[in-house]
């Protein structure tokens, strides 16, 4: 089991008032699963993503990643987890604007302490994987939205993380480019990556093989999709 979450809760303090965002989540995700987490705003899906992505720690409960208890880690250890095991893909790309694509992709490896030569090699490979080998020296502003998101995907891939965590990855893209990105995710999944997709769009969620619906901080439904139906959908 790659991810095992037991009775996880998260409360926020709004002034003096404790507001529960997650009220006891139990969740298991295996390696090479393709999971979509859905839910309306305020359902707690962003909170769950932050905790899954080691950006935040739960109030109570357990989060085991590869059998390691993440909820007990300190700030530096969480940073190392994010660096090695989580590949973030954000709605707004979140690239560093003053750096080339290549340098952006290299960033996680810099923090991992990988040497210059190895860094360059792996980053070029990741950019080739997303089809942007020719745009390596371009800065984000010189790229289209779809290309920027591909750079972001390359940056997420470059450390060979345990999971790819995508937060509304098509939210800032037109439907055609969005489709291209989702096809890229399909390919990455076939190559053995574990993907967790956070979205509120049903069409996007349908690319995943399993859909978890959150409501009011709890899991409302957890559906494993029939693979045949997906094939039918892709070939209308």
């Amino acid at each position: 089991m790659l991810i095992e979450i037991k009775n996880l809760t998260k409360d926020y303090l709004m002034g003096e008032v404790k507001v529960p965002a997650l009220k006891g989540i139990d969740l298991k995700i295996k390696k090479n699963e393709y999971v979509a987490i859905m839910g309306p705003s305020g359902s707690g899906k962003s909170t769950l993503m932050n905790i899954l992505g080691c950006l935040d720690t739960p109030t109570s409960g357990q989060y085991l990643f590869n059998k390691m208890d993440v909820s007990q880690l300190n700030d530096d250890e969480l940073s190392a987890m994010r660096n090695r095991e989580i590949g973030f893909i954000f709605q707004s790309f979140n690239l560093l604007p003053r750096m080339s694509s290549l340098h952006n992709v290299e960033m996680p490896l810099i923090y991992a302490g990988v040497n210059k030569y190895e860094r360059r090699k792996q980053s070029v490979k990741a950019l080739e994987r997303v089809g942007l080998a020719e745009r390596m020296m371009h800065k984000p502003a010189e790229l289209s939205g779809g290309q920027r998101q591909r750079v972001a995907v390359a940056r997420a891939l470059v450390t060979n993380p345990g999971i790819l965590l995508a937060d509304e990855p098509t939210g800032a893209l037109d439907s055609k480019t969005g489709l291209e990105i989702m096809q890229l995710f399909d390919e990455l999944h076939h190559e053995g990556n574990t993907i967790i997709l956070i979205t509120h769009e049903k069409e996007i969620a349908e690319y995943a093989h399993r859909t978890i619906l959150l409501k009011d901080g709890m899991i409302f439904s957890d559906l494993q999709k029939n693979l045949n139906s997906k094939i039918e959908k892709q070939t209308p």
Binding site: D75, D76, R82, N83, R84, F88, L96, M107, P108, Y111
Partner: peptide, 14 residues
């Protein structure tokens, strides 16, 4: 930028 760097693995000390 600091948020992005932190998300991809920068420690406080970095």
């Amino acid at each position: 930028e600091i948020g992005i760097r932190r998300a991809i693995g920068a420690r406080k000390s970095d």
